Amino acid sequence: MLTAVGVVLATLLTLGSLTGCVVNTESTVPPGDRVRAERVDAIAEQLPPAIAESGRLRVGSNVPYAPNEFKADDGAIVGFAVELVEAVGDVLGVDAVFEEADFDRIIPAVQAGTLDLGSSSFTDTLEREQSVDFVTYFSAGIQWAQRVGEPIDPNDACGLRVAVQTTTIEDIEEVPAKSRACIDAGRPPIDKVKYDSQDEAANALILGRVDALSADSPVTAYVIERSEGRLEPAGEVFDAAPYGFVVAKGAPLGPVVQQAVQHLIDTGLYARIVDRWGLDEGSITTSQINAATS
């Protein structure tokens, strides 16, 4: 989730035609089985012994944040990043076991060793790199959404009500910075309206309770795609930054996961996963450890 302490959409979204609200439904999960990979011994043999012996990669994730992480109708955690981690597990010869957790508790759990990996649309930032390492796997920016025919300028939103998901970079940095600029210019601040999930934020916009929505670009694109023509982009994508899987600072697991992600990229399996979820625009060609520039 593009978050300076970062979170990106809610349980897959579609609009209820009778209520006009976003509804979670398994039907928005891409059809067919997930993309699978073969074990690569040269990479798997570098796994820390404790993980290799357990046969499990303990992964912390906060949902809902579709299309990256969310729950299907049967309660299983699914999504683009989930499928990518599962493919990483294939390469490493272990099962990725997802544990639902509050977003702000995932990094501390990785630091404490109760989780091996954090996968919750974390934005790789210089500030976070002081405490944990990131293995990059995607590039996301910030994208605003508006109701069709009701134009909003993200750079001139003083006095408007803007929905954000709590603890995202939009909540913590982006919208507050825009609001401060309004005040400094002698104009009314932005009324930031916080929601616990992205589907609630999307519903608020659709129902006219807010004027715009700000979220990570893949999340906003997913909301718009499933809005039955009621929502559209407001402005361009901006402030692109890498998403990264979180590992403990200096942990040997980091380079192993990076090699696994790069293997998926080099073999075309990464492209298949990205394409399956319709997120080609943010795909990368090189996975890095700690690629933040800000």
Rank of each mutant, 00 (worst) to 15 (best):
Thr167Arg: 02
Val246Phe: 01
Tyr243His: 10
Ala37Thr: 14
Ala221Thr: 09
Phe122Thr: 06
Glu100Gln: 14
Pro154Asp: 01
Ser287Glu: 03
Phe238Asp: 02
Val246Ser: 05
Glu173Gly: 13
Val132Gly: 10
Ala112Thr: 03
Ile190Phe: 00
Ala52Leu: 13
Ser54His: 07
Arg105Glu: 13
Glu150Arg: 01
Val35Gln: 02
Thr11Gln: 10
Asp133Asn: 09
Leu279Tyr: 00
Cys21Lys: 10
Gly254Cys: 03
Ser131Met: 08
Ala260Arg: 11
Pro233Thr: 04
Val5Leu: 08
Thr114Glu: 08
Ser61Phe: 01
Ser121Pro: 05
Glu26Thr: 13
Pro30Ala: 03
Trp277Pro: 09
Ala81Lys: 03
Glu83Asn: 03
Ile77Asn: 07
Gly268Leu: 07
Arg34Ser: 15
Tyr222Ala: 15
Leu264Lys: 07
Glu225Arg: 15
Val78Ile: 10
Gly55Trp: 02
Ile206Cys: 05
Gly55Ala: 13
Gln165Val: 15
Glu129Ser: 10
Asp73Tyr: 01
Glu53Asn: 11
Val59Phe: 05
Tyr195Glu: 03
Val23Gln: 14
Leu160Phe: 00
Val110His: 10
Asn290Lys: 05
Gly149Glu: 06
Val219Gly: 15
Pro31Glu: 14
Tyr137Arg: 04
Gly149Met: 00
Gly244Asp: 00
Thr267Phe: 06
Asp74Pro: 09
Asn290Asp: 14
Ser131Arg: 11
Ala202His: 06
Ile152Glu: 00
Ile77Pro: 11
